[in-house]
């Protein structure tokens, strides 16, 4: 068994339910705790966590359930963010328009690139999603009217029917939390639905699925579009959180980080994507506070996780524990 293969099909167990409830309650309480510390910093850090959790959920949906290892998902975040920025540059800042537009643009990109990526599989799929991600990155960099490589600042955060809903950092926080919860429960429903059953089956044995009558390609493409749309949602939120958009949002390292978040939290669990995003970004903060060369620690840590821990951070902790108790 490898990391790609959780031993059992995902089921709703009491333990999962408790973990999920704990995660969302904890996230809901963060702003209250933040009031006692560096409130602005903590809130913006956790908004980032939640935004990337949404994107990581999409990646877990593709990798963990569809067996489609995407190495270009940051492109969708970028597309969503750029849609907000470009609309803003033209004076459109109302999310009643920009949010559906951001989702539509990324879904469309997913549909077109998915049509090509999904004709291939395995390592081809990895490389092609990587290449398309890079394409989006370079296009963004060549958009001279919208800042080119330097990126572009948003005129203001989005409004909803003229109402400045994101004016307050707390409001932005809770809206983001709401979207995260929505994304989580949506994907969970999809995974267990008829569609999700076909999507999961296609990962296990596409030939089999075809011979019992499913057009695997079309199901996978729908899955890819769903994941792309969620990436766009994350991008919409990220643009509002940072009030700034740049091609760096789409860099291939970002796409790699999304995969790492999912691996951190445990592949094919959905809630693991949230845990993974949080532990990745918090670990980054901690290591970065410890030394500016934190990547010298982080890189080897990834290698160690792959070599010694099957099953993410949780697996690493368990295997270390096992060694300690044995020793």
């Amino acid at each position: 068994m490898s990391m790609l293969a959780p031993a059992m099909p995902v089921r709703r167990s009491a333990r999962t339910e408790i973990a999920v409830a704990a995660i969302f309650i904890a996230l809901a309480l963060v702003p209250f705790a933040a009031a006692y510390g560096a409130q602005g910093y903590i809130l913006s850090l956790f908004v980032r966590v939640m935004v990337f959790a949404i994107a990581a959920l999409a990646v877990d949906f593709l990798c963990g359930f569809g067996g489609l290892i995407t190495f270009g998902h940051a492109a969708f975040i970028g597309l969503g963010a750029y849609t907000v920025a470009i609309a803003g540059a033209h004076g459109v800042t109302d999310m009643a328009i920009t949010l559906p537009l951001a989702i539509l643009v990324s879904a469309l990109f997913a549909y077109v690139t998915g049509t090509i990526c999904l004709r291939t599989s395995g390592v081809y799929f990895i490389m092609i999603t990587l290449a398309f991600g890079q394409m989006a990155y370079f296009i963004a960099g060549s958009l001279a009217p919208y800042g080119g490589d330097d990126g572009i600042t948003l005129p203001a955060r989005s409004t909803l029917f003229g109402l400045a809903v994101f004016k307050d950092d707390r409001a932005l926080y809770y809206v983001t939390l709401g979207f995260l919860a929505g994304a989580y429960f949506l994907l969970r429903a999809v995974v267990y639905s008829r569609f999700g059953r076909v999507f999961r089956g296609a990962r296990e044995n596409p030939t089999r699925m075809a011979t019992i009558g499913f057009d695997v390609f079309r199901y996978q493409r729908i899955g890819y579009v769903i994941a792309g749309a969620l990436g766009g949602l994350a991008g919409f939120l990220l643009a509002n959180a940072t009030e700034f958009v740049s091609p760096a949002y789409m860099s291939w390292q970002r796409s790699g980080e999304l995969i790492i978040m999912v691996i951190f939290g445990g592949l094919g669990t959905l809630y693991g994507a949230i845990v993974g995003a949080a532990s990745f970004l918090l670990l980054e903060e901690v290591l970065a506070g410890f030394t500016e060369n934190w990547k010298l620690i982080f890189g080897p840590l990834l290698v160690l996780i792959v070599l010694f821990a099957r099953g993410g951070m949780v697996g690493l902790v368990t295997s270390i524990k096992a060694r300690l108790t044995r020793g």
Partner: peptide, 19 residues
């Protein structure tokens, strides 16, 4: 059940738990 699903009805249903 997946085979039953393949034969009968649409599998483009996204929210209701199939199980």
């Amino acid at each position: 059940a997946l085979a039953v699903q393949a034969r009968s009805g649409s599998s483009y249903r996204f929210l209701r738990p199939a199980a």
